[in-house]
Design a protein around this nucleic acid. Structure first.
Length: 310
DNA sequence: AAGTTTCACAACCGCAGGGTA
DNA sequence: CTACCCTGCGGTTGTGAAACT
């Protein structure tokens, strides 16, 4: 397999492009964003295999070899390329870091939405999820999930696999992501920006949610702080529209008016979740389920919105 | 300014499944 | 049949950077 059509690669820049390389290479020329001074160590078993962060030289050797000979057969590849690395290490380095079709940068709201949806369907099947996010690796998605999602499940004192937490994702965060995507799309397509809840400071949005829930279900125990407990989950039936993008088949056709403080917005719910999700993510072949509204607690509205802050 | 905590992510580890000699 | 090897996957760790106190 001739990946690049060139014979050898003399620099990382040549292989990955100047923009990419500047984000990869550190001042001292080492690779990776974590390890400023790679000092690979030898393995403990007495062999001269190296481990730890990869050097630029190793990366170039690996890239040149794969460019010339293709990937696969990693153990022999490592030997033939003269790399004192295990085949596993070479494979990982290539797949997670050096592959030319890797997509770098922040996970976009569309990608976040897709990750949430696919994880709700498949669980921790990271490689399977990654197959549906071109340019993203399973490792990247796994890291995203652990650093963002699990952290906030912990803050909420929810089990990440609990129904409570799944409901939070499905009925709060995912609709907000959709809203964010819509807002971004409309902002780029129109000079006139219609503010939505996701564009407001979270304090403001939370205040609105608190007001709604106070009216619907007055409780002296309503918290307004981040990281509140989920103990009341399921006690209160969810009634207020969280956003103009919170929609299900059950509310299709309804017209709901709500005011986020910058002027009333009127939304016609004519799309099913799966239809809109499909349009959001450009996705149409995974047979998304239709979501139904469930009973959520008031504390959900106070959760710090992790999805909207990059 | 210094120390501490948190975040982000590259890399490693162990295991399972498949292929093959 | 079986032992061995390779590959791929998911869980975990280690590290520097950034944020916070």
């Amino acid at each position: 397999m001739d990946l690049m059509g060139s014979e050898t690669i003399s620099s990382m820049e040549e292989f990955l492009g100047s923009e990419t390389i500047s984000s990869i290479l550190d001042v001292d020329g080492s690779t990776g964003t974590c390890f400023k001074s790679p000092t690979p160590s030898l393995t403990d078993d007495g062999s001269d295999l190296r481990r730890g962060p990869w050097t630029v030289e190793e990366d170039l050797i690996l890239m040149n070899y794969i460019t010339a000979n293709g990937e696969g057969r990693w153990n022999s590849l490592a030997r033939c390329a003269g790399l004192k690395r295990t085949g596993k290490s070479c494979r990982l380095r290539w797949l997670n870091y050096l592959r030319p079709d890797l997509r770098r940068g922040n996970i976009t709201p569309q990608e976040q939405l897709l990750i949430l949806e696919l994880h709700s369907r498949w669980g921790n099947r990271w490689s399977k999820i990654a197959q549906h996010l071109p340019g993203r690796t399973d490792n990247e998605i796994k890291n995203y999930w652990r650093t963002r999602v699990q952290k906030h499940a912990k803050q909420l004192k929810c089990e990440v696999n609990s129904q409570q937490f799944k409901d939070i994702m499905r009925y709060l965060w995912m609709p907000r992501l959709v809203e964010r995507i819509q807002a971004d799309a409309s902002a780029t397509s129109s000079a006139k920006i219609e503010p939505s809840a996701s564009l407001l400071p979270m304090d403001s949005a939370n205040h609105e949610f608190d007001q709604m829930n106070q009216n619907l279900n007055p409780s002296p125990e309503i918290s307004t702080t981040t990281g509140s407990s989920c103990d009341s989950v399921g006690v209160q039936l969810w009634s207020a529209p969280v956003s103009n993008s919170c929609f299900t088949d059950s509310c299709a056709g309804q017209t709901i008016e709500h005011n986020y403080g910058y002027g009333a917005q009127e939304t016609q719910f004519t799309e099913s979740w799966s239809d809109l999700f499909t349009s959001m993510c450009g996705y149409n072949d995974i047979g998304l389920p239709d979501f139904e509204m469930g009973g959520l607690g008031d504390n959900f509205w106070n959760v710090e919105d992790i999805w909207l802050s990059q």
